[in-house]
Write a protein that binds this DNA or RNA. Sequence first.
DNA 1: TCACCCCTAGACCGAATGGTCTAGGGGTGT
DNA 2: ACACCCCTAGACCATTCGGTCTAGGGGTGA
Lengths: 183, 183
Amino acid sequence: MAKNRTTKDKLAWTAAKLFQEKGYEGVGLSEILANAKVPKGSLYHHFQKGKSDLAIAAADFASREMLRVIDDAFVPAPDYETGLTTLFHKLAKLFDLMGKWNGCPISGTLLTGAQNAVFRQLSEQIFETWITRISQHAIRLGIPENEAEDRATHLFVTLQGGWTLARARSSSDVLRTLPRYLT
Amino acid sequence: MAKNRTTKDKLAWTAAKLFQEKGYEGVGLSEILANAKVPKGSLYHHFQKGKSDLAIAAADFASREMLRVIDDAFVPAPDYETGLTTLFHKLAKLFDLMGKWNGCPISGTLLTGAQNAVFRQLSEQIFETWITRISQHAIRLGIPENEAEDRATHLFVTLQGGWTLARARSSSDVLRTLPRYLT
DNA sequence: TCACCCCTAGACCGAATGGTCTAGGGGTGT
DNA sequence: ACACCCCTAGACCATTCGGTCTAGGGGTGA
């Protein structure tokens, strides 16, 4: 987790954490403010549109962190399968650390609540970024180019679904068994 | 979709629909009441604990419908692979019908919002019901018993993740390509 | 040292939230 | 025909929601 150097960062970080736990609609501004120990005036100074701008910043924040985890798993890996297995194990550990409750930071923040074209579009863009990144690692690790995108999508889908099941079960075990299906 | 014979059913059905669209926290009581054309007094007569009881009824409702779709796909299938492919195609069609926005009715209703032990537990129970049902079909269609649970879990995870990606992309295409990974 | 301005601080706002409570309409059993 | 009671109906409640606005603290540049 990054640190809260500035007030703006602190807000984005706190919001990301809370949205992931309870979803966009499930968190009130007052709760975010109280957690970040920042007054309302500061929020609206840094994020003119208020809660929705904050959600975008939070999603961006979370996405960058996810990309970091992906890189950490795949960069040192000798092949795609090893990288992927490491990724799932890393995420299982993360899941446990977060109290076995949190959902996907992106769908929890952007795909919850009323239809919002901007949110939906941003979530799509972020997901494609993840898939592309995984795909690049796959190619680098010897997966044929015409297969890589497909493999990456499969991985993403499995991860997304596995996380949901893990959440319902309150157990990260599923996440650790999933690589079996992807090799 | 079942019909709204009684006021109670109408409420559960309307709530299920709305929770699936916007999540538990994203829907107000007043919106449900207006859509169902039912006064508040009736709601609290049929569901003493109010919104949370309504969510439980809605999830139950949605779960039964999902089981029906699963059966519809697998019962006439000659083998597991065919059944599974039919299931994904049926759900893709459903996804399109619902305006390409709705999420999983269970996670949207129960796994959104603040930590709630009852909701979490119910979601787990419902998901396991689905997996068990799929597993039973698998066995009936010739999958070895010691593999069936595993295959069913894999299917569920793929479905759950695929639906999320379909939602972000506003396209049911992914859902149609997923069976490829499951055979 | 002083003026400037970025940012913090929180009081305040109307609207909407989930929930409670009292009345009364209308179908049913006798 | 009457009494009973299930259910509808919606006014009303405190609380919280997201958002606006004015004041002032405090660091920086000249």
